[in-house]
Design a binder for these strands. Structure first.
Lengths: 237, 237
DNA sequence: TATTGCCCGATTGTTGGACAATCGAGTTTT
DNA sequence: AAAACTCGATTGTCCAACAATCGGGCAATA
């Protein structure tokens, strides 16, 4: 079956404008403190309506790149005022970048395991055990096991009590969920199920006994095993 | 059924609308796959113009929360498609949240120190020593010392070789720079300068000798000292 | 019957113009 | 000299269209 490429017909005009202005800023042509051209000037420049320019400007403002004031104009913010940290998934095509992201998630999960062991409440422990039970109930490495796995890690992250840590770990895990699926497909269904469950059991045990060091160690083993199984070589550039 | 509150005039209208819709989504009232009300309907609901609604919608789309299609409408994306992880600085007013963010930065910096000790190149080491020299050259805890301090931490983050880790550590540090300034103002200029420099020297020494464990320990001590000096109580909720 | 082509309403994308609110600087008044 | 005022410029909001696209229904046809 022939595969047709989806034509990128120009895309959204505000996207293009926002990218153009953003390029100007990151290239240093527009330095912090400088005023952007007025909306009407930009509209004339690009040959579009002012509303289109406005949406582009609004986007940059919501990203914290610029700051607009009625009657004044739009000024470029210093980098320290950038209000958002954005993980650009378009940059994930490279293997290097994926390895970096994988490593970052591993570090955070290990830390999260250690903290969760210290602070976990009884209800956290209960949620973790039910998630692990769901994993045990699966006869094979199917889609629902991946879901239960994700649930286990999510519970662990929330058990830290740190909302930021939980959010970013959860986010990274969800973004890297495809990798576990890839692991299953590449590695086959052999003893992968047992190994995975055993690794999680070790983590749960350490969290249950509130042993921080053991929790970190168990999670490190799990992450290490996962990366090794995936064949993602981290730490070697 | 999704229920939106009447908005109060006063802030950015698109901001308020975007927040309302976002709340509805995160509360589960609008589940992935659901269609949002049409733009005209939302405009009528909130009593604003369609342009305002459009800016709000554009914002949510650029955040990856929804996906709009001409002729169809706007559908809520599954969480896995969320392309951005956003740190909302507006939520930092609470002391709890600030403590959480501080803890997250600490964890990442400790990990970064350990990895940097393993992987640092000679040029990384050189950059770190010059940054520390700049700190030593300051006669008091002035603005340029804060800059040199930030430079030291930035060099350490880049020395890890992990671009994602470096980016997020750098971002969090820049966002928390005001806290070090606050520390200086509250704590006074006494022996703070010497203590700070000594802590950094320990980190540099461990990185120079490629001693991972010592680097982690030194950074942990530095972070712990900084939090204690700031009076931010972490880990106790 | 099943498929194809077409029409039509609905919805977003874009345009253009208009007015309100606010800011900054120059000007006037005290 | 300081305060108040005027005024042009710029962003914020509103309104009314038209264009582009989608999805479903409907009829024509093999």
């Amino acid at each position: 079956m022939a595969q047709f490429k989806e034509i990128r017909r120009g895309g959204y005009l505000p996207d293009l404008i926002a990218r153009q202005v953003m390029d100007q800023i990151s290239a240093g042509e527009l330095q912090p403190g400088d005023l952007l051209p007025t909306e009407t000037a930009l509209a004339d420049l690009f040959g579009v309506s002012r509303n289109v320019v406005r949406e582009a400007i609004a986007r940059l403002r919501s990203d914290g790149v610029i700051n607009t004031k009625q009657g004044r104009g739009a000024v470029v913010n210093p980098p320290s005022a950038r209000a958002t940290f954005r993980v650009d998934m378009a940059a994930l095509t490279s293997k290097d970048n994926l390895a970096d992201l994988f490593e970052l998630r591993g570090l955070l999960e290990i830390d999260a395991a250690g903290i969760a062991a210290q602070r976990r409440s009884p209800s956290d422990l209960e949620a973790l055990t039910t998630a692990l039970d769901h994993m045990r109930a699966r006869p094979s490495f199917d889609e629902q096991l991946i879901e239960a796995d994700a649930e286990f890690h999510r519970c662990l992250a929330t058990a830290t009590g740190n909302s930021y840590l939980a959010t970013i770990v959860d986010y990274l895990s969800s973004r890297l969920k495809e990798t576990t699926r890839a692991t299953r497909d590449v590695y086959g269904q052999g003893d992968l199920l047992d190994v995975t469950i055993t690794e999680h059991e070790r983590v749960l045990e350490a969290v249950a006994t509130q042993d921080q060091k053991a929790a970190r160690q168990a999670m490190a083993l799990h992450i290490d095993g996962a990366t090794r199984r995936l064949g993602v070589v981290t730490g070697e550039k």
